[in-house]
Design a protein around this nucleic acid. Structure first.
Lengths: 236, 236
DNA sequence: CGGTTTCAGTGAACGGTGTTTACAAGAGTT
DNA sequence: AACTCTTGTAAACACCGTTCACTGAAACCG
């Protein structure tokens, strides 16, 4: 079955170790510690050998970003799967809380992926879970109707693009959404929710609230409640 | 009047040039380009000489953060002063728009100050303009009354702390706020507004919206409208 | 099997970095 | 004039990303 030659097996194994070492360095000592030489030292090889696997230090960092995204996606999916309530509202809460917890537990990774002035994230790279969940949320039809003409016309073009992204994301999992359910008003509110979720988490991770927060968790939960209320979510 | 000796004058001048050079490098080529040797080259001196002014590269970066904050504060104050409408709603819009424009024009600075896993910003370092404005907004008494018991009790302690920060911020400018006007409900909504403003700006600067945004400006304005509406702001 | 190609890894080198150290030379002080 | 304090230098150390010529073993082929 395994048609791979000995060399090929060794190669993928080494590549795995490189990623693992890079990840450990990032977590332990921050972005600036993710060094070609430090990675090589961990593997017991020399730095130039890494050029057989990556074109440059920058390319390796990009790969690292992808790995982080994939890992986070796994965590969020697990949180989603762990919720057995079957209620979309609970699922949204579970994923959002999971995202916050992940970000607080992995500040370096969060900063690298979500708060670096690099190239924009591709739709695939972007946590597909959020798209999944957003699509599901809309498909559940539990969000209060928001008229399309609530949102300015200038935004229509962009929101339609996001609509297509959402459709593609859920269709991967076999779910289809009726056209009239996925209207622009709802999509706009999904974007607004992302703004608030991301804003709160980033402020917390970077300690940029204008005062010392001693009880961050209930503060986040409170924001979550407000968010769900503002998008007109109705409990089952 | 100027009791400063020749040496003292030269020293402050050199320090000014160091900051200026560091700033230019950050803007032109990003955080990693702010190098002791690069700064020294710009001044025509050698790198070790910089240790007469800063204890380490890290200390210099911290100073750079402070300078950036001060500059941004100046920009925001200017935006606030430029608004002659006298209406608090317009002032809020002016400052928020100015913050967004500054962040987009200075992505490297924004990332360094607002999105780095460093030590939390001190209250003084934190844009005092926001506090100023938040205090003024509340003092104007145009925000709809929000009952204190709307916010969970666990948050009271933290919000009271923020309340004191706000009081201190406005009292510097001679403005005083009546106790009953600055209630916890309003303060909570101010925090929520910061979450949304920061979230939107950061997502835009870092290109982390889940779709390509072709009309970012009206999208921001739309968020601003929603924000002001959600905190129950009533136009004069 | 023997000869050849492919390729992961090496060691040396180049120019860059933060930081420390010993030292020079001018400014300020007595 | 003699002294101290301050600001700069040059040299050195260890680290960094990256290139290049080279080695040795794995894979391939006739």
């Amino acid at each position: 079955m395994t048609e791979a030659t000995r060399r090929e097996r060794l190669r993928v194994e080494t590549e795995r170790e490189i990623r693992q070492a890079a990840r450990a360095l990032l977590v332990e000592s921050g972005r600036d510690a993710v060094t070609l030489r430090a990675i090589a030292r961990k593997l017991g090889i020399t730095a130039p050998a890494l050029y057989r696997y990556y074109d440059s230090h920058d390319a390796l960092l990009r790969q690292l970003c992808d790995d982080i995204c994939a890992d986070m996606e796994g965590v969020l999916y697990a949180a989603l799967a762990a919720d057995t309530s079957g209620q979309v509202g609970c699922q949204v809460r579970a994923v959002c809380r999971s995202f916050r917890r992940w970000a607080l537990a992995h500040p370096q990774e969060f900063a690298l992926v979500f708060a670096s002035p690099r190239d924009p994230l591709g739709a695939d790279q972007f946590g597909a879970v959020f798209l999944q969940l957003a699509g599901r949320l809309i498909a559940s039809n539990l969000v209060a109707k928001h008229a399309d003409d609530e949102v300015p016309e200038v935004l229509h073009e962009d929101l339609v693009r996001f609509q297509q992204v959402l459709m593609a994301a859920v269709s991967v999992h076999g779910v289809t959404i009726e056209e009239d359910v996925l209207n622009l008003g709802k999509i706009y509110h999904v974007v607004q929710s992302w703004v608030r979720l991301y804003g709160h988490v980033a402020l917390e991770v970077f300690g940029r609230f204008p005062f010392a927060v001693s009880n961050p968790e209930p503060m986040f939960d409170s924001m979550l409640d407000q968010m769900l209320m503002d998008i007109g979510f109705q409990d089952e």
